[in-house]
Every structure is written in C-alpha cells, then in structure tokens.
C-alpha cells in the first residue's frame, strides 16, 4: 500500500488570465498515484479535469504546487530536462478526430514517438509500429493509411498505440471514451483494461461518466470548480459517498434500469463561474445542506478512514448535520 508513488501532486494550482478575468481553474489540488494504479478524475465540465492532466504532463505551466514523478519534482524543470517524463508519461485524448494529424500516415504518427526517443530505426521501426497496431487490435497493414480512413473507435486505438510507443509508466487519459458510441466505448474500455494488465500501466483517467470511472479506476477524485471535494477508493465513492456533491452527482446520473428510482432530488442552479467562485465552500450555492458557516470558511479535506477523504463541514455519516434553521 505504501509503495512510493509514481506521481505525487501537492497543492497544485493553476490560474489563467489576469485580475478582472482571472480564472481559477485548479485550486490547491493534491493526490498521488501508485505504480500500476488507476485514479479517476470526475467532475462536470469546467471543473479543471483536463487542466490537471495537462499540468501533470507539463504541457502547461502551473501557478503553484509541486508535481513529483518518481520522486523528482518536475513542476519547474526546463523542457530539455523533461526527457524522462516524456518517455514515461503519455496522454490519450478525447476527440478522436483532432488528436491525430490529418496529414500524416498512421506509420508517421506512431513512428514520431519512436523517433523522438530514438527507440528503433529502419526495419525495426516498421516492425515495432506493426506490433503496436496489433497490440491495440488493428491490423499492421493499416499503417500506411491516413486517419480519415478510420472510424472514431479505430482512431482512438491509434491514439492509444501512439501513447504506448514509448512504453510509458503513466497514461493521462482525458475522456478517452466520451466521444464514442456505447458499443465502441466498450471496446476501448476493454482495450485499456487489457493494456493496464499487460503493461502494469498507471493511469490518470478523466471522465464525467461515473459508471465508466467506477469500472476503470481503483480510486476516484471528485472535482468541483477546480477543488477536490472527495477522494477515495472506487467502492467507497460509489457506495458510501460522504460529500453532498458526490451524492448529487451519483443521483443525477441516469441509471440504465427502468426499475431504478427515477431522478427526483436534484441540484438546482448552474455551476458558478470559475472567475467568481463562491466564498467558503465553493459548492454552497447549490448544496442542499449549506449553512452560514459554509459561506465563511473553506472546509478542509478530512479523513473518513482508509484513504477516503472529503471536504465538507458536516459529516452526515456521523450525524454531524447542520443545525436545523
């Protein structure tokens, strides 16, 4: 359990823009991922999921906080010292169309990864590309095709093959199945599960679909307006959620079961703008249990045992309810 983490993020913060239009996209986020572990990031759009993914891979610069990869703080290293990160951490994207250069053949898309780290050349390189395609369930003969000759699901597989080319230890998967039809989504989920098993990959798996995250991940972090509301094992989060937002999210996800209780309790209102987040607890404008205290002070993440943490002033599981008004 206490194996040293592959990735450890502390106090990660990212602001975009300047004063009047300052967007607080990510605010003091901490989590860690052990080797071979899959951490899910869930939250509604704009909650900062993609931003965290890109920060972790150093595709954008953080405003504050540390990002340790295999113990080394990479958050401030210059690009030329990031070779080992580029070799060990990769990304898979949501949009199966925009994530592959339309003007390159599959051979060159995957080959680029091999070339960037001088992993193979000549016949070896071609062989390796074929092998990677077969790993993701595509015939090696497809390597001379262009992206537009593939369906969405197949393109997503190519994106996965590209990420695998460098034999990474960590993959940041940003909504990798959200743009796919259910039947194709299932194919890609199974593929990613297999690869995880085969290569012992750790993943930061971003999604807004709780069912998918629950299936894919060992642990889940729930985000709202750039803050972690709750984090814990998949089972804890989905069976025993402690935070009102997690509960609302679970209640709002429609169940594909006509006998399941229908959505009746639901959150009112919209997600506030990240330019003007509410004071105190950011969830208070939509929280059914909010009190004056919630407007005054920011709830700290507190432990519910076994690595399960949540950020709320009240713990309903222990009958810590706000006094009735």
């Amino acid at each position: 359990m206490s194996a040293s983490p592959l990735l450890a993020v502390e106090g990660l913060t990212k602001h975009f823009g300047r004063a009047p239009h300052l967007v607080r996209a990510v605010e003091d986020v901490s989590f860690h991922i052990a080797p071979g572990e899959v951490l899910g990031l869930v939250g509604e759009s704009g909650s900062g999921k993609s931003t965290i993914g890109r920060l972790v891979l150093r595709l954008i610069e953080s405003t504050a906080g540390t990002i340790r990869f295999e113990g080394q703080d990479i958050s401030k290293l210059p690009e030329r010292q990031l070779k080992f990160l580029r070799r060990n951490a990769q990304m898979v994207f949501q949009d199966p169309y925009a994530s592959l250069n339309p003007r390159l053949r599959v051979r060159d898309i995957i080959g680029e990864a091999i070339d960037a780290h001088r992993l193979a050349s000549g016949a070896k390189r071609t062989e390796r590309i074929g092998e990677l395609l077969e790993t993701v369930g595509l015939p090696a003969s497809h390597m001379s095709r262009f992206p537009h000759e593939f369906s969405g699901g197949q393109r997503q597989r190519i994106g996965v093959a590209r990420a695998l080319a460098v034999e990474p230890k960590l993959i940041v998967a940003d909504e990798p199945v959200s743009a796919l039809d259910v039947s194709v989504q299932a194919q890609v989920i199974n593929l990613m599960q297999d690869l995880r098993q085969r290569f012992g990959l750790a993943m930061l798996f971003i999604s807004h679909d709780l069912d998918v995250v629950e299936l894919m991940c060992d642990r889940i972090a729930v985000l709202y307006l750039g803050r972690v509301m709750e984090i814990g094992s998949s089972e804890e989060i989905s069976q025993r959620p402690r935070h009102p937002y997690t509960r609302a999210l679970l209640a709002a996800s429609p169940k594909a079961d006509p006998d399941a209780p229908k959505i009746r309790r639901m959150l009112t209102g919209d997600i506030p703008s990240p330019m003007a987040p509410p004071s105190g607890c950011v969830f208070r404008t939509r929280c059914p249990m909010a009190t004056d205290e919630c407007a005054r002070s920011v709830p700290k993440l507190r432990s519910a045992g076994d690595g399960h943490k949540f950020a709320c002033h009240y713990d309903t599981a222990n009958d810590e309810r706000p006094a009735a008004a």
């Binding site: 070799r87 951490a89 990864a113 460098v166």
Partner: peptide, 9 residues
C-alpha cells in the same frame, strides 16, 4: 495532435 507531439517530446 500538437499537444500529443509535445507530450512525446
């Protein structure tokens, strides 16, 4: 796809 290339180094 440009982001992917950057992530690949």
């Amino acid at each position: 796809f440009v982001e992917a290339a950057r992530a690949l180094g």
